[in-house]
Amino acid sequence: MNFRNKVQENSVGFQMAPMLDIIFILLIHFMAATIFAHWEHKLGITVPTADSGTRGIRQRGEVIINVDEVGKIYINSQEMSVERLESLLAEIADAFQEYPVVIRADRNSRHQSVMTVLDICTRVKIHNVAFASIPAEGRPE
């Protein structure tokens, strides 16, 4: 018996539909990543300038805490009470030891509000804390 005559030999060509699916998935991923990356800048906080300030590379797991000029504390554009912030940072510190915390305080915010956030970080044993600033005018980034 000759079975080879019944087997069709079609050449497999370039499949365009799976390629389009992958492109759309990548597009959605990058759109969502852009939205999440800009959440911390949504509040309109004007961070202070610093001559020695440099733009740091975003670190994995970075927690950004915003303090506005009236002293309200925000994470991801959600207002946090001091108690809620402490419990949230304690959970983060228990799960991930070296996650950095960046404090973006408005240049007109009260010093006490920033010290409250620093005290909370110390109580929950987070020691990788940085302050956000922008370069002074006339100084290149």
Rank of each mutant, 00 (worst) to 15 (best):
M1L: 14
Q8S: 15
Q8K: 15
E9G: 06
N10S: 15
F14I: 08
M16C: 11
A17Y: 04
A17V: 09
P18I: 02
P18L: 00
M19P: 02
M19H: 05
L20H: 03
D21P: 06
I22G: 11
I23K: 08
F24N: 09
F24P: 04
I25C: 09
L26I: 13
H29N: 15
A32R: 14
T34H: 15
T34N: 14
F36S: 11
A37I: 09
A37M: 09
H38K: 12
H38P: 04
H38A: 10
W39G: 05
E40A: 03
E40T: 05
E40Q: 07
H41L: 14
H41C: 11
K42E: 03
L43K: 09
G44D: 00
P48D: 02
A50M: 12
A50I: 14
A50V: 13
A50K: 11
A50P: 05
G53C: 15
G53T: 12
G53S: 13
R55C: 12
I57C: 07
I57S: 08
R58A: 10
R58F: 08
R60I: 14
G61W: 04
E62V: 11
E62M: 10
V63W: 01
I64K: 02
V67S: 00
D68S: 02
Y74D: 01
I75A: 00
N76L: 13
N76G: 13
Q78M: 14
E79Q: 05
S81W: 04
L85P: 00
S87T: 10
L88F: 04
L88I: 06
L89P: 00
L89V: 02
A90D: 03
A90I: 06
E91A: 13
I92D: 01
D94K: 13
D94M: 12
F96L: 08
F96T: 10
E98G: 04
E98W: 02
E98N: 04
Y99I: 12
Y99G: 06
V101N: 01
I103S: 00
A105D: 01
A105C: 05
R107H: 08
N108I: 12
S109A: 03
H111M: 14
Q112I: 07
M115W: 07
V117E: 00
D119Y: 11
D119F: 11
D119T: 14
I120S: 00
T122M: 14
K125I: 13
K125W: 08
H127W: 12
N128G: 03
N128V: 05
N128T: 07
V129C: 01
V129H: 02
A130Q: 07
A130F: 05
A132P: 03
P135H: 05
R139C: 04
P140F: 15
E141R: 13
